[in-house]
């Protein structure tokens, strides 16, 4: 469910010179379910993704993030529900699908393909394919062109997937844990290049990630999934503004937060860190200062962790039934 909707006209990823890709209608998902035998992976999702925005898809392993992306693009068949891309059913719809790019985290390549083979074929797949971008990215990531893909390292395969995804300039680009195997400096290259690519050629990017704080600056909206459902869909700044972190000596923190809705609490010796709902302003801020407490905006990862979205134990259907609304 949505926390709120806000305008993103001034987001740093938005270009002042939007090109034709911003004229798309986005993705709408209604009542989407997906079952494998008796196991129901997606439990009736409703989702609206707007063109030209970068979405972070967050959740513990196995909650259905990859399945959701696969079903939207018809890589996997849905059990029920409806998916629309630019108002059209994407299933076997070449005109719609040619504007999508989704290289899976465990993408299967032909054993003998090299990056060069793919680079030869890719311009035919994407009308706005940028060979220059592809070469630039492959150079930055040091991906060899003539080595069979099966011999590339995990990080090199991720770098190849990132390079193709960004060079495709596809209106709908899905990235499934794109950083796997990348070292920190390569991840920085990825974040930098993603930001540049999206600002120059706006597109809808749906990116699943566990490295939330690293990628938080790229995301405009965050979608939190828990056991096949969407627990939260809101702009990142709304999510981070919805809670406050209070840190200090345990007795002072307990005294201060007594009247607040405490979401999570962690202690290290006598130092305690607590996340509370809402903001701390005015006289409350003065009271915190008097108690020598630090009051600050928490990071997105801290909030997501506090909500238990990344905690596998809290992602059972029973837990979700009991927990109900997170927002």
């Amino acid at each position: 469910m949505k926390l709120a909707t806000t305008s993103h006209d001034h987001h740093p990823l938005h270009s002042d010179h939007p090109d034709e890709s911003t004229k798309t209608d986005g993705i709408t998902v209604q009542g989407l379910t997906k079952s494998y035998g008796k196991h129901r992976v997606l439990q009736g999702l409703d989702l609206r993704l707007e063109s030209g925005k970068v979405y972070g898809l967050l959740g513990a392993n196995g909650v259905g993030k990859t399945t959701l992306m696969s079903v939207i693009l018809n890589h996997t068949f849905r059990s029920s529900g409806q998916v629309r891309i630019d108002g059209q059913n994407p299933a076997e719809n070449a005109r719609v699908l040619e504007r999508t790019c989704f290289i899976h985290e465990d993408q299967r390549w032909h054993d003998e393909y090299t990056a060069r083979h793919l680079l030869q074929a890719l311009p035919a797949f994407y009308p706005r394919w940028s060979a220059q971008t592809a070469q630039h990215l492959l150079d930055r990531f040091s991906v060899p062109r003539k080595t069979p893909l099966k011999k590339l390292s995990r990080g090199q395969r991720s770098a190849l997937a990132i390079s193709i995804s960004l060079a495709s300039r596809a209106d709908y680009t899905f990235l499934d844990e794109p950083y796997l195997g990348l070292d920190p400096s390569s991840r920085n290259i990825f974040y930098e290049e993603l930001m540049l690519a999206v600002s120059e050629h706006p597109r809808l990017v749906l990116m699943s990630t566990h490295l939330i704080d690293e990628a938080a600056n790229l995301m405009e909206d965050v979608i939190l999934m828990r056991w096949g459902r969407i627990d939260l869909h809101a702009p990142v700044e709304d999510v981070t503004a919805s809670m406050t972190a209070v840190r200090g000596m345990d007795t002072a923190v307990d005294e201060f937060t007594a009247g607040y809705d405490v979401v999570s609490s962690q202690s290290l010796g006598r130092i305690k860190s607590v996340l509370v709902r809402g903001s701390v302003v005015g006289r409350e801020q003065q009271r915190a200062e008097d108690l020598h407490l630090s009051v600050e905006s928490p990071g997105l990862q801290e909030i997501v962790a506090a909500l238990g979205v990344l905690d596998a134990e809290q992602n059972t259907p029973e837990h979700v039934e009991n927990k109900g609304d997170l927002s």
Partner: peptide
Amino acid sequence: ATVLAFGGT
């Protein structure tokens, strides 16, 4: 899998 990843049917 490659063709589907690249937006083919």
